[in-house]
């Protein structure tokens, strides 16, 4: 499991960091993303639709992403 701590980073940086990391993974691998940017949650929703990867919100500022 990879952790990305993007707290303090503003959009689109959390999604860019996520995109870099996920490109190195295999299908089914997971990433935990920490982000306090208000744009991250709506952008994760759009990003997962566009890329086919899945995401769920675990708690405030913490998201679990599963590679397609």
């Amino acid at each position: 499991m990879i952790n990305i701590d993007a707290r303090g980073l503003r959009c689109p940086q959390p999604i860019i960091e996520l995109g870099k990391q996920i490109s190195t993974l295999n299908s089914g691998d997971q990433i935990t993303l920490y982000s306090d940017d208000p744009a991250t949650e709506p952008d994760l929703s759009a990003w997962s639709r566009m890329t086919g990867n899945k995401f769920s919100k675990i708690e405030d500022e913490k998201f679990l992403i599963t590679k397609n």
Binding site: R10, C11, D37, P38, A39, P42, D43, S45, A46, W47, R49, M50
Partner: peptide, 20 residues
């Protein structure tokens, strides 16, 4: 968000589920 005064993304795009 990076272009708005309050650093909030467009609530319209967010409500639609479109990339902000």
């Amino acid at each position: 968000a990076c272009t708005s005064d309050n650093l909030e993304p467009s609530h319209v795009l967010a409500a639609m589920g479109v990339l902000t």
